[in-house]
Design a protein around this nucleic acid. Structure first.
Length: 315
RNA sequence: CUCCAGAUAGCUGAGUUGGUAGAGCAGAGGACUGAAACUCCUCAUGUCACUGGUUCGAUUCCGGUUCUGAGCA
């Protein structure tokens, strides 16, 4: 069975993925699938640094602007849609390029992680949430230990969200999530893939992040958030937890000044970039591209195409 | 000028009734398998401004110096 080609292009936020993805897509005849948990939402453009129609330069893009901010979107939904689009792209004899900063999403597609068909059980989550509020996170963790000792050993009691998910998993499937995870971890990718991670030196990356946040404000991030609130999207939505959105909402609610909101967005974005790098470091078969090693886009592109040829992507 | 207050980790602060020091933030590292731009874990030797003195021992007490703030001119 011949493995299908897949290009992954990722890296920490503000590293320069968007520009690179367009150049690469044009060079290899690729179509882009966005692996970004915020750009999928409509009306969230400035804060998510969403690519504009003009910047796309005619390259097809998927999973951008496909959901309303109050629709449920998660990795399960993402994966299903990504596979659907990939099939279409292969049908056109094009190469899918998975681009975006959500490492978890990329992993789910690349390794074909299997998810249970059952729907998110919000009421059960809420029930556990209340249990934790009443008896403490330790007690909740103890409940997990009773049904899945291994998972309890891996998940810190303070990590309430993960503890709840592990309990939810057991509740829905009668199986231990730790066993499920162990099986999924063994998986080999069914694709002939190249996984590029763009990177640059930390100071430079942080400088770019700080600058980008300032630009977002100039471009009207505050107005964008105000618009979202006027449309009725509230701060408790998952989409509104996005970087830049939650802080501006808090500012508009009078919790702190605009200046402080800006500083918080910058800080939180730096932290996010750091977490992304931790994720990518752990991924296997990753090809790191240090941006400062290349004089410009042309040079970077040439190097990437060399790698693609070596790996037999164009076979 | 002041029988005034302060000078402690990159920043902001605690503290040591004299036995060489803790926090928060920043920063670094890590985890993550249906909320993932989420959530969570780990990481501090710093001439305790400088300089004399008292003391077995001073960052901690006393004197002086420098700087900062406040006040008075």
């Amino acid at each position: 069975m011949k493995r299908l080609p897949l290009i992954v292009l990722t890296g920490p936020t503000a590293v320069g993925k968007t520009d690179t993805s367009i150049a690469l897509a044009k060079a290899v005849g690729g179509e882009i699938i966005s692996a970004d948990s915020v750009q999928v939402y409509r009306y969230m453009d400035i804060g998510s640094a969403k690519i504009t129609k003009a910047e796309m330069e005619g390259v097809p893009h998927f999973l951008i602007d496909e959901f309303e901010p109050d629709e449920e979107f998660n990795i399960f939904v993402f994966q299903k849609l990504a596979y659907r689009y990939m099939e279409e792209i292969y049908g056109r004899r094009h190469i899918p390029i998975l681009t975006g900063g959500t490492g978890f999403y990329i992993q789910s597609v690349l390794y074909g992680i299997e998810f249970d068909e059952s729907q998110t059980d919000f009421s059960y989550r809420e029930e556990l949430e209340e249990y934790a509020a009443r008896y403490g996170v330790e007690a909740l963790h103890e409940r997990l230990r009773l049904v899945d000792e291994e998972a309890a050993g891996c998940i810190h009691a303070n990590n309430k969200k993960r503890v709840i998910r592990a309990l939810e998993y057991y509740h829905q499937t009668q199986h231990k999530i730790s066993e499920h995870n162990r099986e999924q971890q063994k998986k080999e990718s069914p694709y002939r893939f190249v996984y590029f991670v763009l990177n640059r030196n930390r100071e430079e990356l942080y400088r770019r992040i700080n600058l980008r946040v300032e630009k977002m404000i100039e471009q009207g991030l505050v107005e964008e958030v105000r618009g979202l609130l006027e449309r009725g999207y509230t701060r408790d939505l998952v989409s509104m937890q996005g970087l830049g959105y939650k802080e501006i909402v808090a500012y508009l609610d009078g919790e702190y000044s605009l200046e402080e909101a800006i500083e918080r967005i910058q800080k939180n974005t730096r932290h996010f970039a750091k977490r992304q790098l931790t994720w990518f470091r752990r991924e296997k078969d990753v090809i790191w591209m240090e941006m400062e090693q290349y004089a410009g886009m042309q040079e970077l592109l040439e190097r990437m195409i060399d790698v693609l040829e070596e790996k037999g992507i164009f076979l």
